[in-house]
Amino acid sequence: MPKEAIELFSLFGVGALLVMLVGFYSLLTTRSLIRVMISVELLSKSVMLLLIAAGRAVNRTALAQAMAITLINIEVAVVVVAVGIILCIYRHHKTVDTAVVQEIKG
């Protein structure tokens, strides 16, 4: 593996890991379902960055872009569904606090 390629990937890899860290932290600590979804979005940003950087590092940008565009599509679908579910939860509970989604336990 060429040294430049590794270094390029490492730089963006570090960035992606940090964003991932931020996303997971927020996912674990936030009290709002909307913020939960925003955290999930951050997580997908991080992997997207990882993917593009990997593609660039090995000169497979076409494949990486094709994958990224597909992922963006999937992201949209997930977000739309999640938002729909959150809206319904809001309709039931008049709140989007994550505390309302812990009834199923044991």
Binding site: Q65, I72, Y90
Partner: peptide
């Protein structure tokens, strides 16, 4: 990173559409 097509999608969909979805949800 030489991925203009993905960048365009990212800009339009992820920086444009998804925040709009979130903001309208927040509004609701």
């Amino acid at each position: 990173l030489a991925s203009p097509l993905a960048a365009v999608f990212e800009l339009s969909v992820c920086a444009g559409l998804i925040p709009v979805i979130f903001i309208s949800t927040i509004g609701l």
